[in-house]
Amino acid sequence: MDHFFLLLIWGVMVGVDLASFPQIMIARPIVAGSVAGLLLGDPVSGIQLAIIFELFALDVMPVGAARYPDYGPATVAAVYVAAGSPGILGIGIATLIGLATAFVGGTGMRIVRRLNTYDVQSHRNRLDNGDSRAVYGITFRGLMRDALRALIVTGIGLAFGYGTRRWLSVDVTTAVLVSIVGIGSALAAGTSGAIKITGRGLGAVSWIGLGALAGLALVVIK
C-alpha cells in the first residue's frame, strides 16, 4: 500500500510538470514510466511501458492548446498494472488501462483551463489595472487546480489498475492477443507521430526512412 502512495505522489509530480510547473518533461512516459518501475521494484515492466507510451506520446502535437492527452500519470498507472503480471500476459492490459487514463487526463486539462478562464474573467478589472495580487492569485489557483487534476487522474488510473489486478481475469490467449494489438498500436502511433512531426513531404519521410534503415541495422548487429 505504501507503493500506492508513492505512485500517487509521483503521478501528481509528472502531471503538473506537463503544462504547469516546471516543464522539465518528467511528464514524458520515458521518465514517468521508468521511475514508476523503479519505485515498484519492477524496472523491466517500467521500461517496457515507458517505451510503449513514449511511442504514443510522439503522436501528440502540443500545438492544439488544450487537447493533449496526459500520458505521464497514464504511464504510472500502466506500470502499476504491468508490475502485477509482467511479460506478454500483462503488457496489453496495462496499455489499455494507461490509454484510458490518458483519455481522462486530457479531458481534465480542458476543465482546469476552463476554470482558469472563469477565474480570469471574474478578476478582469483587477488584472487590467495591474493588481499584482490578482496575478499571484490566479497563477497560484491555476497551479493548485492542475495539481488536483493530476491527483484525480492518477487516482483514477491507479483505481483502474487496482480493479484490473484484483478482478479482471482473462484467459492466456486473450491476454496475449491484447498485448499483440497494444504493441502494434503503439508502433502505429509512434510512426504516424514521426510523420506528423517531420511533415508528409517526400524529403521529410526520407529522413525517417534513412533513420529506420540505421535502426534495422542496429537490430541486426545488436
Partner: peptide
C-alpha cells in the same frame, strides 16, 4: 526536422524489436 526524422526512424525499429 531532419534530426527528429532520423532519430525517430532509428528508435521505432529498435523499440519494436525490444518490445
Amino acid at each position: 526536422g531532419p534530426l527528429a526524422g532520423v532519430t525517430m526512424g532509428i528508435a521505432i525499429p529498435l523499440a519494436a524489436e525490444s518490445l
